[in-house]
């Protein structure tokens, strides 16, 4: 059962440079089906549109970002609701309660001049009417922190008194305090040290297994994906090019880009020669026509230059967008 769907989602940045309009095709025709009770990883390199994709999934669409086409649907009360058809009030209500967001830098969520307690209070009051503070606010928050293995004392400290990893974990606690059905995490471990990264990932896993909800996790770090994700979608130049279970992505990558990506990952204890894909990712302002990867692909044919391959199921549960496996084109 899917909990979040997109259909032909296109989200472009429109940049006006002194009267000249430019379109940055950050998310270009993406279909997603994210299931209940899974951790879905979105992988890709910087500038491939993965952050834009999750911003759009969260409904955080502000100029210069514009949704050009397509739908994002949440499953609520057994029905699918298109979020772009909702008014702002409804959007505010479901945000954090139904779907929440863990941003890259924790400082944008925690108020730097107030104690952590204040952030929690502010957050909960926006969604719940609190009559009895002790019963309805303090105790549930403390229970929540204890369940996540965080010390309750952090409520009385200021964000700058906590280490970066602790702040990030507080952000996770804050994003999950209303027990959302979907959690979107944008590079939650970037800029943290490896030990801290592990702490944050451990926490996210704990949250997911206790709430049985869905986590959509974006990171460029394939090691993190290998450790936490159930399924992984690989993005390249604004398009989803492969999607499969974590074991399949690492063990049997189909798309040439994914093969390069997986093949180039260094591991401790392995000194064998590894190469990168040649060339560099294309600009999203004028991406190559046809398959976006063909200029860097050593198996490209004339067909790849002419048409865009569609993301289709090649093996059960394993989708790829490549003419090596299927001739299905995107209709444009």
């Amino acid at each position: 059962m899917s909990v979040l769907n997109t259909e032909g989602l296109k989200a472009y940045y429109i940049i006006d440079v002194l009267g000249e309009k430019r379109y940055v095709r950050a998310v270009d025709d993406v279909d997603l089906e994210i299931r209940e009770n899974e951790i879905y990883g979105i992988a890709g390199e910087s500038g491939c549109g993965k952050t834009t994709l999750i911003k759009t999934l969260f409904g955080m669409v502000e100029p210069p970002l514009n949704v050009m086409d397509g739908k994002v649907k949440y499953k609520m009360n057994a029905e699918y609701a298109d979020i772009f058809a909702m008014d702002n009030k409804r959007m505010r209500e479901i945000r954090w309660e139904y779907i929440s967001y863990i941003p890259q830098g924790s400082m944008s969520v925690l108020n730097p001049v107030q104690k952590v307690r204040y952030s929690f209070e502010h957050f909960i009051k926006a969604h719940r009417r609190i009559r009895n503070k002790e019963e309805e606010f303090i105790k549930p928050v403390e229970r929540h922190l204890q369940a996540l293995g965080l010390p309750v004392q952090i409520l009385d400290s200021y964000p700058h008194q906590l280490s970066g990893g602790m702040r990030q974990r507080v952000t996770v606690a804050l994003a999950t305090v209303l027990q959302p059905k979907i959690i979107i995490a944008d590079e939650p471990t970037t800029a943290l040290d490896v030990v801290m990264q592990r702490g944050v990932i451990q926490l996210l896993k704990d949250v997911q297994s206790s709430l049985k909800n869905t986590i959509i996790m974006v990171t460029h770090d394939m090691g993190i994906h290998a450790n936490i994700a159930d399924r992984i979608g690989i993005m390249y130049a604004g398009k989803m090019i492969e999607e499969a279970s974590t074991e399949e992505i690492f063990g049997n990558p189909l798309h040439p880009y994914t093969q390069y990506l997986i093949g180039s990952l260094p591991k401790i204890g392995d000194k064998s020669y590894k190469t990168s894909a040649p060339g560099a990712p294309p600009s999203l302002i004028n991406p190559p026509e046809g398959c976006r990867f063909y200029p860097r692909c050593d198996r490209a044919t004339d067909e790849c230059k002419a048409a865009i391959p569609k993301l289709v199921e090649i093996e059960p549960g394993h989708k790829a967008a490549c003419f090596l496996y299927s001739g299905v084109k995107e209709d444009e």
Binding site: I15, V17, L18, K21, R22, Y23, R25, S283, I285, N286
Partner: peptide, 19 residues
């Protein structure tokens, strides 16, 4: 506005207009 280094950098990366 024109001389602002940020918009200047955007302009420097001259790319064609799509659409």
């Amino acid at each position: 506005q024109y001389l602002d280094p940020r918009t200047r950098i955007q302009r420097i990366g001259t790319a064609k207009v799509v659409k």
